[in-house]
Structures are given as C-alpha cells and as structure tokens.
Write a protein that binds this DNA or RNA. Sequence first.
DNA 1: ATGGCTTGTTTTACAAGA
Length: 259
Amino acid sequence: MLLATWNVNSLKARLARVLEFLDTHRPDVLCLQETKASSDSFPHTELKDAGYSAVDHSGGRWAGVAIVAPVEHSLDHIVRGLASEPRPDEARWIEATVSADGNPLRVVSVYVPNGRALDHPAFQDKLKFLDAMVERTTTLVKDPLFLAGDMNIAPADADVYDPAAFRGSTHTSAAERSRLSRLLASGLVDTFRHLEPDSTQYTWWDYRAGNFHKNLGLRIDLGLLTPDLARRCQRCGIDRSFRKGPKPSDHAPLLIQLS
DNA sequence: ATGGCTTGTTTTACAAGA
C-alpha cells in the first residue's frame, strides 16, 4: 500500500503535475494541501478520468485540503474540520476512511496555519489549531491512522537548512515544537525520520533566489503513522522530481510504502 | 537576503505563503 502527501500550492495550477504524480506512482492514498479550490471548482471529473476519487474540504481562495484514492477503494465516514479550531472557515482538516480490499484505514489531510511571525495574532491561531489537533488525535490513534500534511513546523534543527537564520521565526519555535512533540507522544511516528534517522532531506524550498537548486529547504511536510503501521513501512522518500520541471509547487511530495 | 517567486482575486495592486 502506497501512501502520499503533497502541498500542491493550488490544485488548479498544479492539476497537470498531480495527474502526472498519480500516473507515475499510482498511490492508494494521496493527501493534498493548499488546494486553493472552492467546492464547486474542485476537479473531480479530471481526477475520475485518471481513475481516482476525492473528498475535499475547500475554503476558496486560501488553504483547502483533500484526500484522493483510487475509484475502486471506498472513501467514507468523512469529517470536515476540527472541533475547537480557531478559524473553521479556512478548511485545513479533513478525515476519511479509505478501504482497500476491506481493510479500513483512517486518513487525515491537514494544513497547519503558517503563523506569519511569533508576535503576530496569526501565531496564536496556529498554536490553538495545534492544540485542537492534539485533542482530536488522542481519539483517532485508537485505530490505525495515517495523519499527513503540511505541519508548518520543522521538527528539529536537522530539518532546517540554516537553524541560526530561523531563530526567532515561526516553524522552529519551542511553542510549535512542543505541540508537535505532544502530537507524536499521543501515539504517532514521524515515518520519514523513523526510517532515515540521520538523513537531511527537505520537502519545501522557497521559490525565490534559486533556493531549490542550492537545497536551502525545510522538512515541514510529515506523514505520521500509528506504531503498528509504522512497523509495516518499508520505504519512505521525498520525490524531488516534482519540485522540478514545469510549474512546480514549492513543496515536494512525500511517499510511504507499507507492506 | 531586506519577500528576490507564485498564486488567486474584491486584478493591473495586493495579500499570503514559510
């Protein structure tokens, strides 16, 4: 079973690359973030033509998340939004149960708020969102869970190209990292780091200043698994080829192969 | 490296991203 997550920075602008991704990897689950779609404009028809169905939580101009799976898998028990999240209209959390050959897997696609700056009101909303996430996840981890998306937190300095440059910035603060630690402590494994304890690899690079070519990036897109599923993980990798070529997202997709 | 690209929109300027 192949699981994936990808912040596409507009599903409309990235549709050709997303179809290319589905054709190349044929994932059983693809979590999308920053779809920047409305419910009406979500490209269900184009995905269906590629053999995939999707459930979306769409907020229009910004954010937006979705879960995509092959049409032959069932996709049900959909939950849109997170109880006690500060701005429910922003469409940052969706849950669904994906069943392949009768084996159910609970899946979450999440797009954590950016936070802008430590002294910005948006940062308090980011922390509240993370608290709401921890609260909900405590219940979800009782069953097999794949919780994936753009956490907008680099878990450790090893996940940051220049830790000194990020001191005093969002994505690396103690307030954010302690909440991510609580999320993991609720019973989830950071799959990439579990399989690659010493590897330095990123999932996001700024569009500007040739940062991708200089490999100046952050690892902020995570695929989290409950321990029984993590034990079944054979491979976990970041497909940098989708950060290259025509009209790339500024994030690369993360792939997780389960036995 | 100081927002240097990229996206969408209440477009021809601005907001947001990380």
